[in-house]
Simulated assay, not measured.
Amino acid sequence: MRIVIAGGSGFIGEKLSNLLVKEGHKVIILTRKERDKSEGITYVRWLSEGTTPEKELENIDAIINLAGVSINDGRWTEKHKEKIVQSRMIATDELIRIVERLPHKPSIFMNASAIGIYPVSLEATYTEASKVKPNDFLGRTVLEWERKAEQLSDKYNIRTTFMRFGVVLGKEGGALPLMTLPYKLLAGGTIGSGKQWVSWIHVEDVVRAISFVIKNNGMHGPINVTAPSPVRMKAFGKTIGTVLGRPHWFPVPSFAMRLALGEKSKLVLEGQKVVPFVLLENKFEFLYPKLDLALKDLLK
């Protein structure tokens, strides 16, 4: 297949590109910078003055949209929040424009999303069938992003999926390096109340899930990309300590996190219990279904 990735040089995109090439696909990465072609990967410039990427994207089979400013980068000032939203809206609008101009439409459009679309809760368990009523910045951003991407399904009947990522764990990026640092300094402990849910997933299972969905034509709409065993924050921290052989004893109070991170502290002080019902129903096999397995692979 000829697969286009927007945001293909990021934390998830790079691993996804490598997997797809390994599986024999031709990968086209949309980029703002000039890059040399590498084995199995072609780079096409977009979102820059004078670029017309649609001329180089004929006969593509799939588009994967991972583009957008990371929610983990920088403090959530009003200016930075605007960048988070606009980077996603602008990239998605451009992908819609490109598809409209392609005589041969892709069979699937995969849009990144996030479990932040589900309301924060200590008791609820969310599946893809759960109602979403976002009441905070992240939730509203995700809902707006999904609605924009859905235009391709409405206009052209293209199979469209919303990959609702949980807390993605990896060595090179995501939340894990920051979460493990206190333990490596012998200062690890429970963050906030410790009762908040962490719906996590190993980055290798993220990219495998994306590949799996591409191949399964019956899968569309929201898809929770989380491991089947979410845990509470206290258990998450204790597991890090156990795997690293470090103590879990210095609690980090909520007020300290809010002081340090501002509104972004919600990413660690609040959470949702999310299960990947659609992936499990379609017999996707996780390499790392349990947290200790994932952390042993990433931290040892």
Rank of each mutant, 00 (worst) to 15 (best):
R2G: 00
G10Y: 02
L16Y: 07
L16W: 12
N18Y: 03
L19F: 03
V21L: 08
I29Y: 05
L30P: 03
R32F: 03
E34S: 13
D36H: 14
K37R: 14
G40R: 04
G50I: 03
G50M: 05
K55A: 10
N59A: 01
I60E: 10
K79W: 12
H80M: 14
K81T: 07
S87D: 00
A91I: 01
I98T: 10
S107L: 15
N111M: 08
S113K: 03
E123H: 14
T125C: 14
E128Y: 00
A129F: 09
S130H: 05
L138T: 06
W145G: 00
E146C: 08
K148L: 15
A149R: 07
K155L: 15
I158Y: 00
F165G: 07
G166Q: 04
K171D: 08
A175S: 12
P177H: 09
M179P: 09
G188T: 05
S193R: 01
G194A: 06
G194C: 02
Q196M: 04
W200Y: 00
I210C: 08
S211H: 09
F212S: 11
I214L: 15
G218L: 10
P222I: 03
N224W: 04
P228W: 05
G237F: 05
K238I: 09
G241T: 05
G245V: 02
W249V: 13
P251K: 09
P251N: 06
P251S: 08
R258Y: 08
L261S: 07
S265Q: 03
K266S: 15
K266D: 14
V274A: 09
L279E: 00
L280V: 06
F284D: 07
F286K: 12
F286Q: 02
P289I: 13
L298I: 05
